[in-house]
């Protein structure tokens, strides 16, 4: 699969990364090269093979449904680039 500029622009949009128009060609080449490399997997017969999402042969454990932590507003907000009155702040989303 070769990606064109429009495809790269769409991927960047999905990934929420701003990409300048003049970078699109270069990125299209790089990403296409990577896709070409990984596409050799097509030659492997995987009929009847179940996808492996984890090597840990574990059932995810359940714990009691109770609060174990919380009430740390100041610690949670301490690293926020912008916070006000106990909340994270964002650019205005409603006109």
């Amino acid at each position: 699969m070769s990606l064109d500029k429009a495809a790269v622009r769409a991927i960047a949009e999905l990934a929420r990364i701003e990409v300048a128009d003049e970078e699109l060609d270069h990125l299209a080449g790089e990403l296409s090269g990577i896709l070409h490399f990984v596409e050799q997997l097509a030659e492997v017969d995987t009929n009847g093979v179940a996808p492996m999402s984890s090597v840990a042969d574990l059932t995810l454990p359940m714990r009691k449904d109770e609060v174990t932590d919380g009430g740390q507003v100041a610690a949670v907000l301490a690293n926020a680039p912008a916070a006000d009155d106990g909340f994270f702040t964002v650019p205005k989303v409603v006109e």
């Binding site: 492997v44 093979v49 996808p51 492996m52």
Partner: peptide, 14 residues
């Protein structure tokens, strides 16, 4: 085509 395929090959490697 990509992700699910890779997870299957991962099982074969394991």
């Amino acid at each position: 085509a990509y992700y699910s395929k890779a997870q299957k090959v991962r099982r074969l490697i394991a």
